[in-house]
Design a binder for these strands. Structure first.
Lengths: 221, 221
DNA sequence: CAAACATTCAATAGATTCATTGAATGTGAT
DNA sequence: ATCACATTCAATGAATCTATTGAATGTTTG
């Protein structure tokens, strides 16, 4: 029964990937890596894990094909091997939000009101920007922003958000978007902005969907 | 630091989901459930696990929100709680195919040539069907097929494929499609058809993408 | 070459996962 | 009520996972 064997083997391999994702610390590392390449050092610092432990987790992720690494001098830099990894985690989050009561309780406990957390749709964004109620922030890296973005959106890559807080208005609503409905960056940005007292929400979709829908876009800047 | 705590808790919950997916037997159960609701009994039989063990795995999947159950008489029927579960597994598979050497070796070992395995694109499908080289099979359940399908596609739900083998031509290429690029059904169908000596390939995309692209569709039948 | 540094390796103990076994629960049929 | 059946529960031991510790490797700097 070659078929059965193929299936069994295939599932065994998929299980390896899932096992890699089945640890909160490794998920956190992936979350940081979604922002770009990072050294073991940085990852250990930002996650609060020991360097040895961080290294072990990263090697686990590498064995399962989720991240890749590159050594430069005495440092080793890790990065996601595929953008699909972010989609995968995002899809897991979306599934969790819909089907896991624990997540719903969690979110309600930490964030003021459920309504505020609801992501906006495209047309709502357009309305609010036109009426001057809101500004749009693109939290993707510079290069992606320059290749195309939502009109009038300003670019604050997530990694620089903390330093740019003072340039943002507290009286307007801030609408963050990134690469897609399952992209983690805009979600993280909203959480961080709210922590700092801003009125923040995220666009349900990301730039690729915006572009696909035929709405106007801007380039460069 | 409420934010940190939220993030940690969130990742801990996502880890629960991933942990549920991190076992080959549970993935196989999900694969069967993708075809529709099944009793514990059936699932145990088809997966080769003991009933008690199957029940335990199913309860694990239920705790993580991936499946739901319903009891009827002395039977308990399980089903996927969300179609996103299939997308999730499909995305994992896609990631594995791209980034995990083990999977590539696996597939090459089991299936004759890599070229044959490559999925077709829409325009290739149209060409081959027009020239009479190929027939198109929709492996989704009846109801989805009736709601709309690729023109001239015949409907053989995956669960009935085994019984319909004799009605299929061995000299033409059989192109299977289902619900999307990450849908498992068409992949499984191709594997099964090849096992039986048919020339089978799958359409890269599924019906939703076909419809979105503006190509003609048929309904009913 | 020696010192400082970043990362990895190896060994360990405690916790968790998995399949198996046999008993317990609950439903429908006789 | 009793019996057959489907499912779940509970307990077990073997295997695996995780964080910690301290040593080892390899690179740059002085």
């Amino acid at each position: 029964m070659a078929q059965l064997s193929l299936k069994k083997d295939l599932f065994a391999q998929l299980a390896v990937i899932a096992k890699s994702l089945s640890n909160a610390n490794r998920l956190e590392l992936i979350d940081f890596l979604a922002q770009g390449e990072r050294s073991v050092d940085e990852l250990a610092h930002v996650s609060g894990l020991s360097v040895a432990n961080t290294s072990q987790h990263l090697q686990d992720l590498r064995r399962s094909g989720l991240v890749k690494n590159r050594s430069a001098g005495k440092k080793v830099f890790y990065s996601l091997s595929d953008y699909k990894v972010v989609e995968l985690v995002g899809l897991m989050r979306s599934l969790a939000e819909d089907n896991l009561a624990e997540i719903q309780i969690l979110i309600n406990n930490y964030l003021a009101s459920k309504d505020d957390l609801e992501p906006l749709q495209r047309d709502e964004l357009l309305q609010r920007v036109q009426s001057g109620e809101a500004i749009v922030v693109d939290v993707r890296p510079d290069t992606e922003y320059q290749a195309g973005h939502v009109p009038n959106a300003i670019n604050i890559p997530f990694s620089k958000l903390e330093h740019e807080l003072k340039s943002l208005p507290k009286d307007k609503e801030i609408i963050a978007y990134c690469r897609g409905p399952y992209c983690l960056l805009s979600f993280d940005a909203v959480v961080q902005l709210r922590e700092q007292g801003f009125k923040a929400r995220r666009l349900y979709e990301g730039f690729p969907e915006w572009k696909l829908s035929g709405l106007p876009i801007e380039q460069g800047l």
